[in-house]
Structures are given as structure tokens and as C-alpha cells.
Design a protein around this nucleic acid. Sequence first.
DNA 1: ACAATAACGGATTTCAAGGTCTTGTTTTCC
DNA 2: GGAAAACAAGACCTTGAAATCCGTTATTGT
Lengths: 156, 156
Amino acid sequence: MFSQTVEYALRATVHLADCAPAARTTEQIARATKVPAPYLAKVLQGLKRAGIVRSQRGIGGGITLAKEPEALTILEVVNAVDPIRRIRTCPLGLASHGEHLCPLHRRLDNALASVEEAFRKTTLAEVLADPNPSIPLCDFPGARGGPEVAAGAETS
Amino acid sequence: MFSQTVEYALRATVHLADCAPAARTTEQIARATKVPAPYLAKVLQGLKRAGIVRSQRGIGGGITLAKEPEALTILEVVNAVDPIRRIRTCPLGLASHGEHLCPLHRRLDNALASVEEAFRKTTLAEVLADPNPSIPLCDFPGARGGPEVAAGAETS
DNA sequence: ACAATAACGGATTTCAAGGTCTTGTTTTCC
DNA sequence: GGAAAACAAGACCTTGAAATCCGTTATTGT
């Protein structure tokens, strides 16, 4: 239902929100979110082009959110990498229907609308502040800020 | 968001519901719903395996719904060809979370749940009975039963 | 200036969904 | 029984998402 790219983009931005306003390298984000690093780099490029994140090259550089977690919604992230395509015209190409969708597509679009609405109403800050008994992001139990493993000679 | 296969399966079943209890050939359905006939045949095979439709070979044969339109929901059709995959365990594979999803995936799954619920509550009969100003299925304005074009030497 | 760090960009590969085509197999009608 | 109608099943092609790889460019620290 949701593409892998969307899943990865959300993991990355939620992680960045959790670390905000500090910058994280692609490698760090990949490790924390268990996303393949080379592909994550691609996804992050897309997020940058959409103005969701900023990047800084060189030593001490990395990726940061372009907005406050309180002002960034799930919908913005989703639409940046794989937009929710609402049904606006009859998929059959029937010119008969101007504005109006047929009953079937009206219902399909309503479902899309409800998803869109739910995503529009949720900010990354809200996700992090959730009083969920489990875990902040999907990291480790009670690991606010991340495990921050030694980051070298550990992948063997 | 929804796959092409789902779109095609829904068009076909709604059309069949509109014609019920008469049988329609794959060709007839393809023409009425503007779906590529060879691929529609595959989709219909899937629907048959799932028990949504029945098929009858030979002259006068074709496809019919296996249930009354009043008893067949959109969700059943969708799940027959491309099931809605609810998020039941942490996609990161974190054993830390038994039942509980993290706040992010909780929200994603809630969105899926709302779609599932909307689809579960809607039967094909309801779709057809919709007092929509536009059109019954996506066919032609006020064309209950289909246009039924001459069906030969017309594709040139 | 030089080296290390890290993002950037393009080329390539992999894989499954979407779509086509051809060859059976069943059923009906004459 | 034979011909036509229709579904069934598998091989095959195409396309785009997902993922990888490698060389380039920008930035920082010494």
C-alpha cells in the first residue's frame, strides 16, 4: 500500500526529528533506521529537492530537517517522495463525467482522502511525543537520542 | 496507492453486479470497463480462484458473480487480488516490540485500518444504488445494462 | 596545499507488476 | 462428431521501483 521509499523517508525524517537540531550523516541514519545506505542517499536527495531536509557536505556535515518537527507533517514527507495521487477525473477517461466521479471511484477517492487527512494532521513532533508504551522511534527500548554505537569495525 | 490490478478487479465486479445475474464474457467486460482484455482474463482468473466469481466455458458462457451484489464487499474484491497488508509487526524487525507498534507505524497502520474498514462496509449493491448525479458504473450516462455495441468489425 | 569527510550524480543491475500472445481444454449448437 | 465459443494456463516481453556502484564535488581541519 505504501511504497518502500515512503517507509524509508518517514523513518529517516522521524529519526532526524528525534535528533534535531543536530545533523546526522547518511551512514548514521541508515544504521539507526535499518535502511540500505546507498538507497537512503537517493531518498534523502529527493527530500532535499522537496525542501524537507537540508544537507551540508564535508567533515561535521550531514542532513538536518529544514523545518521544526512541530511544523513538519507526515503528509509533506510522503508527498515529497511518492505523492498520494487523489482521483480527480474518471480513470476510464469518460468525458461524460466532468467533476463528478462515478460511485465506485468516489469511494476509492474518499479512502485516499481520509489517509491524506490523517497524514496532514500529524506532525513529526506528535509522533515523537506519543505516549506509546513501546518505543520512541523504532530504535531500542527507551533509547532517546539513539544508541550511537562506536560506528567503526562493527559490521564484520 | 491502489494497484492497477485492484482497479481492474473492481471495475469488472461492479460491472458484473450491474448485469447480475446474467453472465458476461471476458471480451464484453473488457470493452465495458476499458481494461486490456488479455490482462483482464488474468485478473478474472484470480477472482475465480478466490471464489468471487464463477466461470462457464463454451457458447453462452462467461463470468458471473459467485455471490449476490448485496453480499459482496469492495474489501473482498480487493483482498482477492491484492490484499491490504496491515502492519502487524515492526517493519524494522525489532524484537523489542511484541504487539505494540512504534508511534510511526501505529499511525500508518491506522490509516490502512480506516481504508480497510471503509471497504468492508461497502457492498457492490450499494455502489450501484448510489444516488450519484453522474453515472451508475463508469460507462455512459444513464446506460444501465451497458451500451452493448455490435461487438464485431468495430475495432478498426 | 593536502587529506579526510561526506553529499551528489549518473550508470547499472535486479525484480516484480503489468501486459501480451499462443496453445490448450471445456461446452454448446448444428 | 465437428465447428465455433469461451475460459485456462503458461511462456514471454516491458516497464518502473528498489537497490547498488563508482566517480565527482564541496567542506573542513591540519
